[in-house]
């Protein structure tokens, strides 16, 4: 495979195997690990806003060390962007045929591509909303020092947001669980049909459990009410949440 790269096409050829393997790997580590951890941290809101705030404070210790941005970039944003963009390239290379060949694995293969696209759209929206959207658009923005209330306000801002979060989290969880199943084949760990069937059970159980965690987190934030606090900014957000128009009950 040696030789000089003369065009983008031959670069694509030369690095084909490497790119596909990196795509598989990046989906597991760090992106998959991040999703798992992110949903678990978010679900701590079910144990109360203080618990979630504590988790956020722990993470934002990194900020004090000036590392948060670097960690976010190197371990979350860049791998995720690569996985998403190259994933679209892979999805476009398929001639999906689940209509003609309605086999379980083929349907899962097709879903893997669609959920990838949905998760990509959802995550872009999610990052934009939590970082930049802010109040002007009727949403809210994540505030690390006021984590539970600001997250709850962002999610409760519209009925559509809650729906989109349910769809987006479900798609992401499916994509990860099924991705683990295919990665085990891709990396030659589950070789025989029996091994692949059994790993399928484990991946399904993992997916169902993670979906419960994710839905738990969403439930926690849609039903969250900030306790009244003297702090200026918290009071503002809490008032916003308590506004009957935005109240989900």
């Amino acid at each position: 495979m040696a030789g000089t790269i003369t065009s983008a096409e031959s670069a694509k050829e030369k690095y084909f195997f490497l790119l596909r393997r990196l795509h598989s790997l990046s989906g597991l580590v760090p992106v998959g690990v991040f999703l798992l951890w992110h949903l678990i941290v978010n679900a701590t809101v079910l144990a109360g806003g203080d618990k979630f705030q504590f988790m956020v404070d722990q993470i934002h210790q990194l900020q004090k060390a000036g590392l948060l941005f670097v960690v976010e970039m190197a371990f979350i944003f860049l791998p995720l962007a690569f996985h998403a963009v190259y994933g679209v390239v892979i999805a476009l290379s398929a001639d999906m045929n689940a209509r003609e060949y309605r086999y379980g694995p083929n349907i899962r293969y097709t879903l893997q591509r669609w959920t990838g696209i949905i998760a990509f759209a959802f995550i872009m929206f999610h990052v934009w909303q939590m970082h930049w959207l802010g109040e002007p658009f009727g949403g809210s923005m994540f505030k690390p020092h006021d984590a539970p209330a600001s997250t709850a306000a962002a999610i409760q801002a519209s009925w559509w947001f809650i729906t989109f979060y349910i769809v987006g989290v479900t798609a992401s969880v499916y994509h990860l669980s099924n991705g683990i199943w295919t990665a085990l084949i891709t990396w030659g760990i589950t070789i025989g049909q029996r091994a692949q069937r059994i790993s399928g059970y484990f991946c399904t159980a993992f997916g169902v459990a993670l979906l419960l965690v994710g839905m738990g987190a969403l439930w926690g934030f849609t039903t969250y009410h900030a306790p009244a606090q003297p702090d200026q900014e918290t009071a503002h957000t809490a008032a916003f949440v308590a506004d009957p128009q935005h109240d989900s009950h």
Binding site: M1, K12, E13, K14, F16, F17, R20, R21, I90, S93, A94, N97, Y101, Y103, P105, N106, Y109, T110, Q112, T182, I185, T186
Partner: peptide, 16 residues
């Protein structure tokens, strides 16, 4: 290499 095993997407229609 290009077009090798990494092009497979594990749809598993082939075996069926």
């Amino acid at each position: 290499g290009p077009g090798g095993i990494a092009a497979c997407g594990n749809a598993q229609n082939c075996v069926k």
